[in-house]
Design a protein around this nucleic acid. Structure first.
Length: 209
DNA sequence: CTCCAGGGGGCCA
DNA sequence: TGGCCCCATGGA
């Protein structure tokens, strides 16, 4: 599959998507957990609450009780599990590295395995953190990627996460900005043209792939 | 009213 | 391992 051609068409059609919105690597990491199966608008409300409460730093998040944290992130939904997941992530960073900057100095594949071992962080959340918070050239696969690729016969519907990720990364140059923009464009395409409800989309801008 | 969003974990045969 | 359920707010 010629994914560069696909990328060029998406970029030409939609233009740059300006991902990931966030003022700091910490905020991006928090957002990555909060957005699990959740609309980004709701995540923004939760992040806004955390900023107002002056909790958007490693030390404060480390010290705030999970139960209290849950109240601030309530608008993001699943607030009880997500508060625990955030605490797991914060504890992982603070007790193993001391800072987010130090954490990202670790070799990427090693870090990736360690993050995957943190309860509440799955492959998509971990890869989003590595790419958008850590600036590591890791391609993020998500439900949109699988839906779009399978509908255009680029993969099977129930393809394994890592398998699809490997195939995509093998057919693209290892480029941070490319991975960053490509994933954002796929999400945009999914939202606008490749919804669950309209499997037959004659207007899809990537018809022909 | 129904659907679903920038997922992941737990349980049980 | 496969199937199923749980988490939960808010916008369309």
């Amino acid at each position: 599959m010629d994914l560069m051609k696909l990328y060029d068409r998406l970029y030409g059609f939609f233009g740059p998507q300006h991902w990931w919105p966030g003022d700091s690597p910490l905020e991006i990491m928090i957002g990555a957990v909060l957005t699990q199966n959740t609309n980004w608008q709701n995540v923004e409300k939760a992040i806004s609450n955390l900023k107002e409460a002056r909790l958007m730093d490693l030390e404060s998040l480390y010290n705030v009780p999970a139960q209290s944290l849950a109240e601030y992130i309530r608008p993001a939904g699943y607030y009880n599990i997500k508060s625990v997941r955030l605490k797991h992530l914060i504890v992982f960073v603070k007790e193993n590295y001391g800072s987010i900057e130090k954490m990202f100095e670790e070799e990427t594949e090693i870090l990736r395995e360690k993050l995957l071992a943190v309860k509440g962080l799955g492959p998509e959340t971990v890869d989003s953190i590595l790419l958008y918070a850590g600036n590591k050239p890791i391609f993020v696969v998500d439900a949109y990627t699988k839906r779009i690729f399978s509908r255009h016969n680029l993969c099977f519907e129930d393809v394994d996460y890592h398998e699809l990720q490997s195939e995509i990364m093998a057919s693209l140059p290892k480029d941070l900005d490319l991975y960053n923009e490509f994933h954002a464009l796929i999400v945009r395409l999914g939202k606008d043209y490749c919804k669950k409800r309209n499997p037959l989309c004659e207007k899809c801008p990537i018809n022909g792939f």
